[in-house]
Every structure is written in C-alpha cells, then in structure tokens.
C-alpha cells in the first residue's frame, strides 16, 4: 500500500509545524530522532497536527516506537482516521 504522504509533503509539514529546516533530499531511511533531531515531544506534536489537519493517525501501540522510526516507517504506518 502506498503511503498517504510523499516525502515532499512530509518535509513541508515538518518544516512548517516544527519550525525546523529539513536536510534535502529526504530518502526515507532517516531516523526521526537520531538523524532528524526531532525529540519525542515534537514528534507527538507533529502527529497531533497530522491527525487534526490531515486526518492521518498512528495507532497507539506504535506511539512509543515513534522516535526510533525512520521517515519511511512513519509514512507507511500512518492510516486514514476513521470517521465515526
């Protein structure tokens, strides 16, 4: 299944929401914490933005793994939020 977000859109959202400059180009293998220097709180802020503004969610069971994820792993794990 193809991810909901491409690299360009992801980088744009990260830069806008977290006020950071991303190293370009992103290849997908970058680890969110160790390579992109995004701490756990900023990653959670990003997730909340993705949910509220774009309708993309990460299941609770994967939240704790978020800092260790790569960009690809995050993008592959994002799912469309179910509308009740």
């Amino acid at each position: 299944m193809s991810p909901l977000l491409d690299y360009t859109s992801f980088c744009q959202i990260v830069e806008e929401q977290l006020e950071v400059t991303m190293q370009q180009p992103v290849t997908g293998g970058e680890r969110l914490r160790d390579d992109l220097q995004l701490d756990s709180m900023r990653l959670l802020q990003l997730l909340v933005h993705l949910e509220l503004e774009h309708g993309y969610v990460l299941v609770d069971e994967q939240l704790a793994q978020l800092p260790q994820m790569t960009v690809d792993q995050l993008l592959q794990s994002l799912a469309q939020k179910e509308v009740v």
């Binding site: 709180m41 959670l44 909340v48 933005h49 509220l52 609770d60 069971e61 939240l63 978020l66």
Partner: peptide, 18 residues
C-alpha cells in the same frame, strides 16, 4: 505501563490544541 505514559503525553498535546 511505560508506553501508556507516551499515549497520555500524546493526548495532552492533542487536548492543548483542541
């Protein structure tokens, strides 16, 4: 137990926005 604190932190950030 440890991971659920992350969920709480996530929900707290969400609540601060919503």
């Amino acid at each position: 137990l440890v991971n659920q604190y992350t969920i709480i932190q996530h929900r707290a950030i969400k609540y601060s926005m919503t």
